[in-house]
């Protein structure tokens, strides 16, 4: 995902603004990292450039 996409994204649960943490980037693209919701304290991983914004309890 591109860094600027963060401005449009919101936490899937509480719709708060997300914080972006970058582990690996290429040009303007975030390859690895995470999106963090300061309100719910949930982390949403970005792997291989694709953010996973499924609700955290989706697996259960």
């Amino acid at each position: 995902m591109k860094k600027e996409l963060k401005e449009k994204l919101a936490c899937p649960i509480c719709k708060s603004e997300l914080e972006l943490r970058i582990d690996e980037e290429e040009d303007d693209e975030v390859k690895e990292g995470e999106l963090h919701c300061p309100n719910c304290d949930n982390d949403y991983p970005i792997e291989d450039g694709i953010p996973n914004l499924l609700p955290p309890d989706f697996e259960s």
Partner: peptide, 21 residues
């Protein structure tokens, strides 16, 4: 071109975007 699209994993019952985007 990569600039032209973004792909996101998500659930349509919990859309991870701000209001009125």
């Amino acid at each position: 071109e990569k600039q032209e699209f973004e792909l996101i994993q998500g659930d349509i019952t919990y859309i991870p975007f701000k209001d009125e985007v």
